[in-house]
Structures are given as C-alpha cells and as structure tokens.
C-alpha cells in the first residue's frame, strides 16, 4: 500500500515546529515505517474486537477519601514561568 502523508499537517497537529528539510526527512521516514506497519491491514479482522488494554478490567474504584494535594508553591516550583500563584503563558487569543 502506498502511503501518502501530509507531514506539515501532522506536525501542526503534533505541535512540533519543523523546518522544510526536517518535514521532508520525517515524511520520508514515516512513509517507510508505515509501509511496514500496514502489514496489519493484511490480516482478516472481520468480527474481531479491538483491544485497548491487555487485561480485562472494568471500573476500578477506590474509597472517596480526601488527601492533601500538592501545595501551590510546590506545584509551581518547576514551571518555566509563574506569576501570582499561576502558570504564566503567552497570549492564547489573538488581539483584534
């Protein structure tokens, strides 16, 4: 199966900024890997249920007990930028 990837679109979805050369490099590699991975399409799987988890487990409950969370100072201690008790980030919305 021939694989055709819009690598620039995939990189945008993955939030990785890549140069044109890098896009070409990764695009070619992904096509090679996916040609091999496409082997999975050769097996007849009609009526086969997908497995998302190796062991049969449903609804894992634990007692609803209140435990102390990380305090704010500790939670912010590793942040690249923090301000007034919050994580600080660049603008999320463009200005009009």
């Amino acid at each position: 199966m021939a694989i055709d990837i819009d690598i620039a679109y995939v990189a945008r979805l993955a939030r990785i900024e890549l140069s044109d050369e890098e896009l070409e490099h990764y695009g070619a590699q992904l096509e090679g890997i996916l040609e091999h991975a496409a082997l999975v399409q050769q097996l007849p799987t009609q009526g086969v249920e997908p497995t998302s988890h190796p062991l049969p487990m449903v609804n894992s409950f634990r007692p609803d007990e209140v435990t102390p969370p990380l305090d704010r100072e500790t939670a912010l201690s590793q942040a690249p930028q923090a301000d007034g008790g919050h994580f600080r980030v660049p603008p999320t919305l463009e200005e009009e």
Partner: peptide, 26 residues
C-alpha cells in the same frame, strides 16, 4: 509522536490504529 499523531488522525484512525488494536486481539 508524528507517527502516532498520524495513526490517530481523522481518516487514518481505522486503517492504522483501529486495525492494530484488532491485531492485538489476535
């Protein structure tokens, strides 16, 4: 990350990720 993003993206999910999960069952 790029490979996984592609395998999960609209239009390719069933053919790649979905099919891989069925092979996992096999």
């Amino acid at each position: 990350v790029l490979l996984g993003t592609y395998a999960l993206s609209a239009g390719y999910y069933e053919a790649f990720y979905g099919q891989a999960q069925k092979v996992r069952t096999l």
